[in-house]
Computed example of a mutant assay.
Amino acid sequence: MARTLISVPKTAEAGEIVTIKTLISHPMETGFRPGADGRIMARDIITDFTCLYDGEEVFRAETFPATAANPYLTFTTRATRTGTLSFIWRGDNGFEQTETATLTVT
């Protein structure tokens, strides 16, 4: 399981635009670099990130080998109701990680 950092405002007013920040610890090996033995290392990247707000997709990003290690993504969404934000990272070799956070709307 990879280490993640997620920043979501504790509270927001109804209709307010909120900024959400995510970071996941992942080496993002491109598949083009030789290892210590001179053989090309296998590709191992995060290929897709999705954020769901109470089950509704509010943000999606597709990443590629040129993406830096430990990908950091920031985006905005409108706070419409108190609910759960689900963050889903998917990648090579069956990698999938889901984290959640609550956004409280006043």
Rank of each mutant, 00 (worst) to 15 (best):
G55M: 01
T63V: 07
M41H: 07
F32C: 00
H26I: 05
T74R: 15
T47L: 07
P71T: 08
F59Q: 05
R43E: 04
R33A: 13
A66G: 14
P27W: 03
R60V: 12
T30S: 08
H26W: 07
R60L: 02
I40F: 02
A69G: 07
E29W: 11
R60A: 06
L52N: 02
R39T: 08
G55C: 03
G38S: 09
L52I: 02
M28L: 00
P65F: 05
E57D: 05
A36I: 06
A66C: 15
R60K: 14
P65S: 05
D48M: 14
A36V: 10
F59R: 08
G31K: 09
A68Q: 13
D54L: 00
T74G: 15
A68C: 10
E29I: 15
T67R: 14
P65K: 12
C51K: 06
T30R: 10
D37K: 12
F32S: 08
G55N: 03
D37E: 02
L73E: 14
P27H: 01
N70K: 11
E62R: 09
A66K: 14
M41P: 10
P27C: 07
I40C: 04
D48L: 14
D54T: 00
E57L: 04
F59M: 10
E57Y: 00
D54M: 02
R33P: 03
L52E: 00
R39L: 09
A69V: 15
A61M: 07
D44I: 12
D54I: 00
A66R: 15
N70Y: 14
E29Q: 14
T63Q: 13
D44F: 07
Y53H: 05
F59E: 07
F64L: 15
T67W: 15
D44N: 04
F49D: 01
T67E: 14
F49C: 00
P34H: 07
F32N: 11
E57F: 06
A36E: 11
F64S: 15
T63I: 13
E29H: 12
A36W: 03
F32R: 15
R60W: 02
L73R: 05
E62C: 07
L73D: 08
C51T: 06
E56S: 10
I40Y: 05
A42C: 13
R60Y: 08
T50A: 12
D37Y: 02
F49Y: 13
I46L: 11
D37A: 12
A42E: 14
F64P: 09
I46K: 03
R39A: 12
F59L: 03
P71R: 03
T74P: 08
A36F: 09
I45E: 00
T47K: 05
A69Y: 02
F59P: 12
D37S: 09
T50I: 14
R60M: 13
G38L: 04
R33V: 09
T30E: 03
I40G: 06
E56L: 04
N70D: 08
D44V: 04
N70Q: 04
A68Y: 13
T47P: 05
F32E: 13
T67A: 12
P65E: 12
G31T: 05
I46S: 05
